[in-house]
Simulated assay, not measured.
Amino acid sequence: MTPFGKRLRELREQHGISLTELATALHVSPAYLSALEHGKRGRPSAGLIHQVNEHFGLIWDDAEELVRLARLSHPRVVVDTAGLSPMATELANRLARTIRDLPEARVAALLALLESPPD
């Protein structure tokens, strides 16, 4: 599941809306929305994000948060380490190889480390 997909599901559940009902309202297929929620599709378009924001009445910070989550929701990431240090390349490769086996607590710790200001 992607960050956008998780938030979309939370919004649906908070408003008591089924996947099919939301898909109809957004003029997309239920299969597409399901794929978005489960991380089987890439980032949603800006238009779809806008539709979701309008449908749920999200404004200001909540709407911006949905845009931010969509940017972070591509399920197949490519990391270009050309021109970076050998350690950066090693880090990218090791993360790609081991991310599926990392416990959630370790993933959370790595995210927190990346969100902290650089030294």
Rank of each mutant, 00 (worst) to 15 (best):
E13Q: 15
A108L: 13
V67C: 13
L58M: 01
P30G: 07
A70N: 15
V79W: 02
L72Q: 15
R12W: 00
R94G: 02
L110W: 08
R71C: 08
G39D: 01
Q14E: 12
K40W: 06
H15S: 00
L36N: 06
V107M: 11
S29A: 06
A23D: 08
R12M: 14
V67E: 15
Q51P: 02
W60L: 00
I17E: 04
F56P: 05
T2I: 09
Q14A: 12
H38C: 11
A35G: 10
P30L: 01
P75Q: 09
R68Q: 03
P75N: 06
N53D: 07
I99M: 04
G5Y: 00
Q51D: 03
T20Q: 12
P117E: 10
T81F: 00
F4K: 03
E115Q: 13
T81L: 04
A105N: 13
A108I: 08
L113G: 04
A35T: 01
H50S: 13
A23G: 08
A96D: 00
R97A: 11
L36K: 04
R43H: 11
G47N: 15
D101V: 01
A88I: 00
V52G: 03
D119G: 13
L48R: 07
G5T: 08
H74C: 09
P86S: 09
H50F: 12
Q14N: 13
M1P: 10
D80N: 15
L72P: 01
V52Q: 00
S29H: 02
L69A: 08
N93C: 12
E64H: 15
V67R: 14
F56D: 06
E104L: 12
D80C: 06
D61P: 08
R100G: 12
L95W: 01
D119M: 10
A46Y: 10
I17S: 01
N93H: 14
S18V: 01
G5R: 05
L84V: 01
L72M: 15
L72D: 13
A46P: 12
P86V: 01
A96S: 04
A105P: 03
L48C: 09
L102G: 08
N53Q: 13
T2R: 00
A109M: 14
P30T: 04
T2G: 09
V67D: 14
E37C: 10
S18W: 02
L84W: 12
A105C: 09
L114P: 06
Q51C: 11
E54Q: 14
D80A: 01
R41Y: 11
E21P: 01
A63I: 00
M1T: 02
L114C: 02
L58S: 02
R43P: 03
L91W: 14
L102K: 02
S116K: 11
L111F: 08
V79C: 08
F56G: 06
L111M: 11
G57W: 05
L110K: 00
R41D: 04
L113I: 07
S85M: 07
G39F: 05
R94N: 11
D61V: 00
R94Y: 03
R7A: 11
L114T: 03
V107T: 09
T20R: 13
P75D: 10
N93R: 15
R12I: 09
A31E: 14
R9A: 12
